[in-house]
């Protein structure tokens, strides 16, 4: 009796392991949920489909032609004052001021509308490395890694056209994109976009300056690392 029991037990264990596998094995099967009590509630969560809506989108898009509460009518890429129906897709802007759009009426403004501090520059540098350096390169020369994989026509910041470009237009380019560059307004919050503008200005200065532009107390440090 015992022998039979152990043989049967042993065989069923082997069978069990053969069927269920071990911990950590990679597999495509949807995980089983052993105690699914209230694990799945019918509430709407971020980036999760919802059966409540006909198109199953949990995250709702603004209704065509409307603007979220607290937002002014946004300025689209093409039209300073959209009134031809192009505002159907709400662009990323919370208003029509210079800070939101980089423009005064129908022309680009210049100047950073938030206090430019060392923290802002650092923040701008960090955000630049995350979002911009992939294409524009760490120094802004347009030699980021994406260029090696077939990204064409990446602008270098170190050309007169961009050196003389107004801050507002650079801000608008980050927000809405330009030519082959898509907009980043949906990914980078307003203040971060201005921080990046400030950092881009610093990059341009860094590549187009003479020793006389460097504060006297910092010159020695720079001379020391000069190649």
């Amino acid at each position: 009796m015992l022998r039979t029991f152990f043989i049967v037990l042993g065989l069923s264990l082997v069978l069990l392991v053969a069927v269920t596998g071990l911990r950590g094995q990679k597999g495509k099967k949807t995980p089983i949920e052993i105690f699914p009590d209230m694990d799945h509630q019918p509430k709407v969560k971020s980036q999760v489909p919802s059966g409540f809506f006909a198109d199953f989108r949990g995250d709702r898009l603004p209704v065509s032609g409307t603007v979220p509460m607290g937002y002014a009518m946004p300025v689209s890429k093409e039209d300073p004052l959209p009134d031809d129906g192009k505002y159907a897709t709400v662009q990323f802007s919370s208003g029509t001021s210079y800070e939101d759009t980089g423009r005064f009426g129908d022309h680009w403004g210049t100047g950073i509308p938030i206090p430019v501090t060392a923290e802002l520059m650092q923040r701008g540098g960090e955000r630049y490395m995350i979002f911009c350096a992939v294409c524009h390169g760490t120094s802004g020369a347009g030699n980021g890694v994406a260029g090696q994989y077939g990204m064409a026509a990446i602008a270098s910041y170190h050309q007169d056209r961009l050196r003389t470009m107004s801050d507002g237009e650079i801000f608008n380019t980050i927000t809405h994109g330009k030519n082959t560059m898509l907009g980043y307004g949906g990914k980078i919050p307003l203040n971060d976009r201005w921080a990046i503008v400030a950092y881009v200005r610093a990059l341009q200065l860094s590549q187009n300056a003479t020793m006389a532009d460097v504060p006297p107390e910092k010159r020695a440090k720079l001379e020391a690392v000069k190649p």
Partner: peptide, 30 residues
Amino acid sequence: LIAVVLTTVLTGGVWYYFTPKYTRVGYMPD
């Protein structure tokens, strides 16, 4: 003896399988 062995095996099985260490780790869907 059979009862003790069976209980141990069942407890061990639950301990080993009834946890996300088994059910979730390694989930790699297409």
